[in-house]
Simulated assay, not measured.
Amino acid sequence: MTLNTTSAGPGPLSGIVVADFSRILAGPYCTMLLADMGATVIKVEGPGGDDTRLYKPPSFNGIGTYYLSVNRNKHSIVLDLKDPEDLATAYEVIDSADVFIENFKPGGLKQFGLDAESVAERWPELVHASITGFGTDGGAHLPGYDLLVQGVSGFMSVTGFPDGPPQRGGVALFDVITGLHAAIAVLGALQERSRSGRGQHVELDLLSAALSGLVNQTTGYAACGNDPQRLGNEHPSLFPYGPFPTADKDLIITVANNSQFTRFSTVLGMPDLIKDPRFDSVENRNNNREELRVLLNEALRTETAETWAGRLQAAGVPCAPILTIPEGVQYAESLGLHPVVQVGHGKDTVPLIKNPVTYSRTPVTYDKAPPALDADRETVMQWLRSHRKDPS
């Protein structure tokens, strides 16, 4: 296999080369998205490889699915930056790149001449993206783990039931959000470079991404000093909005305006609820949620979740069951979304979750399975030799 870095490929980022020095989740998720869109991503790993290779169970053919989930379409080469020859090779990779992405601890790359100032001086056209946990000032010494950020951002304080302890999310949410922000930042810097001809340093940190991702919760505090509390599965500003008991199991019902509430109460056989001054507006339903809850629970317990779902969906009232991860994937398949894609070729093929973006003309691709450690060394080295500038 050769590295395809020409602009003739189908992807919207075909022709862009990314030097990926990141590991774990936020950086690799970002670079996978870029690779899906056609960028050539060279994954530079230390001698021990990306930690997530060993994150298991679960595993697929002995490889942790954590690693597999964010590393398709990349080319792996092992380089020990403490070795002068390997460091020279790392410089060559960056020499040929449009984008350099890393998530080293602040100051950790200075010894290798890869700090922001050195990179900007040596590669002025390069887009350099740095991802940290808590920034490069007062939080520079803090390790960047998603769970720590879930804790200090306030996310856990609003997750869980009022009478229970704070809860973590079921996935490394802020790593993923930071990876998305990083991809957006890189694309913005590349677009600006197309006008100015100059690269720039873009910085991201997990805590800032978390506070941005907490949207209404953090804005409520910033704008008016609101201190949100845990509400379990309740919404702080809307009711009914959450799971409700039926004759057999819970059904999620989300009513966000008066029109939906009118249809909802009509299906339940209580069409006059919208005329009740306690329930005639979003704010009044929210302020009188416990009184309304009693009425709704009494009506909903008369039929099964499936029966109510059919009636409510027919009336245009948003609702859904609570599914397991396997059931969720199967449900997406039943809707024609085809969430599972086969990545790679032959014996290396791996079933993974697809990129959620569909382009009408320049589709994302799934050509290369997540690589084994150092699997692409010869390919990368040959490609570098072909790109070396003639010293004369």
Rank of each mutant, 00 (worst) to 15 (best):
M1F: 00
N4H: 13
T6L: 06
S7F: 10
G15W: 02
I16K: 01
S22K: 09
I24R: 00
G27T: 07
P28M: 07
T31F: 00
T31N: 03
A35G: 05
M37S: 09
M37E: 13
G38Y: 09
V41N: 01
E45H: 01
P47F: 08
D50R: 03
R53T: 07
Y55W: 13
Y55H: 12
P58V: 06
G62Y: 14
T65D: 12
Y67R: 07
V70D: 07
N71D: 02
N71E: 04
K74M: 05
H75I: 15
I77V: 15
I77P: 06
I77D: 05
D83M: 13
P84I: 03
A88N: 07
V93Q: 03
I94H: 00
A97Y: 02
V99R: 00
F100S: 01
I101V: 13
L109Y: 01
L109A: 07
K110G: 12
L114P: 01
D115N: 11
E117V: 13
E121G: 09
H128I: 13
H128W: 06
G135V: 02
T136N: 03
G138Y: 06
A140H: 04
G144H: 00
D146L: 02
L147I: 15
L148C: 03
V149L: 09
Q150Y: 00
G151T: 02
V152R: 03
S153V: 06
S157R: 12
T159G: 02
F161Y: 04
R168G: 11
L173I: 12
F174Q: 09
I177D: 08
H181P: 04
H181V: 10
A183I: 10
I184E: 01
L187A: 13
L190Y: 01
E192V: 11
E192R: 10
R193S: 10
R198K: 00
G199Y: 01
V202K: 00
L207K: 02
A209T: 08
A222V: 11
G225I: 10
G225Q: 05
N226S: 15
G232T: 08
G232E: 05
G232S: 03
H235N: 07
H235Q: 04
L238H: 02
Y241Q: 11
P245R: 06
A247S: 05
D248Y: 08
I252E: 05
I252V: 14
I253C: 04
I253H: 01
T254Y: 09
L268H: 08
L273Q: 02
I274L: 03
K275H: 15
K275V: 15
P277T: 15
P277D: 14
F279G: 02
V282Q: 04
N284A: 15
N284F: 12
R285F: 12
N286A: 12
N286I: 14
N287H: 09
R289V: 12
V294P: 00
V294T: 05
N297Y: 15
R301P: 02
T304S: 08
G310K: 11
G310C: 11
L312D: 10
A314Y: 13
P318T: 09
C319F: 10
P321R: 06
I322D: 05
I325L: 10
G336K: 10
L337I: 15
V340Q: 12
V341S: 04
D348I: 12
V350C: 14
I353L: 13
P356S: 04
Y359T: 13
P363M: 06
Y366V: 11
P371C: 05
R377M: 06
R377V: 04
E378Q: 04
R388L: 08
D390G: 08
